[in-house]
Every structure is written in C-alpha cells, then in structure tokens.
Design a protein around this nucleic acid. Structure first.
Length: 310
DNA sequence: ACACGAACCCCCATTACTTCA
DNA sequence: CGTGAAGTAATGGGGGTTCGT
C-alpha cells in the first residue's frame, strides 16, 4: 500500500520549477521547447509520506490557494469549445480538446459519465486541421478510431503544471473542473497527471540511481581501506615485539554485526572516512555502520587470559 | 460478518504520434 | 527531403480500494 516503492524510499524528491515565482506566471507562457521541465532536486524537510492520501483528505476542492485560483482564472484558457472541424490553435496548432479516442477505452468509457465530454468525443476529431494526414496515423480512415495525438497548448500545459505543483493527483471534482477550465476531457487531464507522475518518478529514479552509485563507490573505497588495515594489523600481530611495544589503541570499536573488535585508534582512524554526501533520511546505503566505541582494554584482557591459564 | 462483483483509481509498459536536429 | 531520437499523449492490463448487495 502506501506508495508502493517509489524509487528506493530515499528522502529525496523533485520539485518542478516553472519559474520559481508564481507571481509572474503569466510571463512564463513561453517557449515550450526551450524550457522543458526544469527539474531540480531539493530535500524536503522530511520525506513526504503517501501524498495521495494526505492530498485527498486535505483537499475537497475548496482549499486551493487563492493565489492559484486567481492564477488559473487569470489565464483564461476556458475558451468556448471550438467547432469540431476547425480547431486550430493558431500559435502551435495544438490543443486537442476533442480527441476521439480517449474515451473509447472500454474500461473507462463510463467512468466520466457526465455526458458533456461524451458528446464531444462522439465524433469528428477534426482537430487535425486539413493537413491532418501529414504523415501521421496512416489510415486515418473515417471509421477506425485511429488515435491522433495532439499536443496541449502552452497555456493548458502551464495550468496543468501549476496544478501538479500543488498536488500531484486530482480528485474527481478537481479533474472535472480542470478539464472544464482547460477545455479538455477529464480523461485527458487524468492521463496528463498520470504521465506527469511517471515522468517525475523516472527523474527521481535517475537521481536515486546516481546517489546509490556514489554510495557504492564510497563503500568500495572504504572496504579497500579496511582490508588494508586488516592486513597491517595482521602483520603487526605476527611480529610480537613490535606488537608489545606498540602503544595500545586508544579506542576500539565493535562491529555490531559480527561482534568483532576493530581498532580505531589515532593511527587507524576508521571513522574519518565516509567521504560522501550525507545519506538521505530514510536510507542508509552504507548499511549498519553504527560504530559504538567499546571501552575495551585488550592488554588487560590479554593479561587476564594468560593469568587465568593454569 | 463475510463474499462477491462493479466501479473507480493508479501504476506500469507500451504504442503512436509530433517535433526537432 | 528523409531519418532517427526525444518527448509525450494515449492505450491496455493488472492490482488495490471502496461500496452496495
């Protein structure tokens, strides 16, 4: 349940920035191509658990921040539904408010049974203007429900993006309202959010992967170093005189898993070694590296061992 | 209380289409 | 102009949850 796996449970998350300031959002209606989706990573104060539940609980279509509300209203993409034949969004020739196919899927056909969109979908895609066959969807035969994908307009994408920034899933009311506002079908809004979540997750996975790669490298390095330490210690132990004349290590640490005591004196400082960035909150890829210092005096122990012998 | 089916939602993998270099 | 790559809208399947019977 909860969030299935969502990457590796790292405390990282992505924030989408369509321009940091929401104030000048209207100015950001530009260049769909150039500024794709400026992902960047940030660390939330704490991991975000189960956004879906929290969001659905918290949001009953009334608590939209007034900012966004005004923003959404201000952008005014709620154009009257275009005539089925002449849907040409001059700028990019986009916006497919009436794609035939999206409501055809049997599984969902009756999901949004509000009628309004059904009548829209019922026929005549048209959105493709005249050159519709321009290489796409071979047949485009009248009867068959070949899907003609049309891009969303910049404004639509922007509004969706802004909404997604607030919460990455929608309840039915929101979906309806957003669809109405953007002159899309609810199914399209839903699909957009699904794809958007997938994109976010993919991006997050890439970030996580990079992080784990770094951790792996660090651990490999650490392992190599420790092996070397072990060899050195063994060498010391084989030369008893050196061993006895050596200053005892100031502190020893005990490995919690194998219960072995490891030297971590000044000359063998094993604690000064995790060079990587601090691990995420809920993941410690370095494994259980808790090194609790154990006040052991090996020399006394050794003496006792000898004395105890008959 | 429990089982069952329907409706709905989400995730995931994939396809189909568009755009750009 | 043709082509491959990248981006993304859309599809279909499977699993989970909720709700009514």
């Amino acid at each position: 349940m909860s969030e299935k796996d969502d990457g590796l449970g790292l405390g990282l998350s992505l924030k989408l920035g369509w321009g940091e300031n929401d104030d000048d959002n209207n100015n950001n209606l530009n260049h769909h191509q150039q500024q794709q989706y400026p992902f960047y990573v940030h660390k939330p104060p704490q991991s975000v658990p189960n956004q879906r539940a929290s969001f659905n609980n918290l949001f009953h279509f009334h608590d939209r921040s007034s900012e966004t509300r005004s923003f959404l209203r201000g952008i005014d993409v709620n154009l009257p539904p275009p005539p089925p034949s002449a849907v040409v969004d001059d700028e990019n020739a986009v916006s497919s408010p009436n794609s035939t196919i999206s409501s055809i899927s049997g599984k969902r056909s009756e999901r949004e049974g509000n009628g309004d969109e059904n009548e829209r979908t019922s026929s005549s895609r048209g959105g493709g203007s005249d050159d519709d066959d321009g290489g796409a969807c071979g047949g485009d035969g009248d009867g068959e429900a070949s899907r003609k994908k049309l891009r969303l307009s910049k404004e639509q994408a922007l509004v969706l993006e802004e909404t997604f920034k607030e919460h990455n899933s929608l309840n039915p009311k929101q979906k309806q309202a957003l669809a109405k506002q953007l002159n899309l079908m609810p199914r399209q809004v839903e699909v957009w959010f699904q794809n958007r979540r997938a994109r976010t997750k993919l991006k997050q996975t890439e970030v996580d992967c990079e992080y784990l790669k770094n951790c792996c490298e660090n651990l490999t390095e650490e392992n190599r170093r420790l092996q070397k330490e072990v060899q050195e210690l063994r060498a010391l132990k084989l030369s008893p005189q050196l061993y006895m004349n050596m200053n005892p290590p100031t502190t020893l640490t005990m490995c919690p898993s194998c219960e072995r005591v490891a030297v971590s004196s000044t000359s063998f400082s094993s604690s000064a070694t995790m060079p990587s960035a601090p691990p995420p909150a809920n993941l410690n890829p370095a494994g259980p590296t808790i090194q609790r210092p154990v006040p052991v005096n090996p020399w006394a122990a050794m003496l006792n061992q000898h004395r105890g012998r008959p």
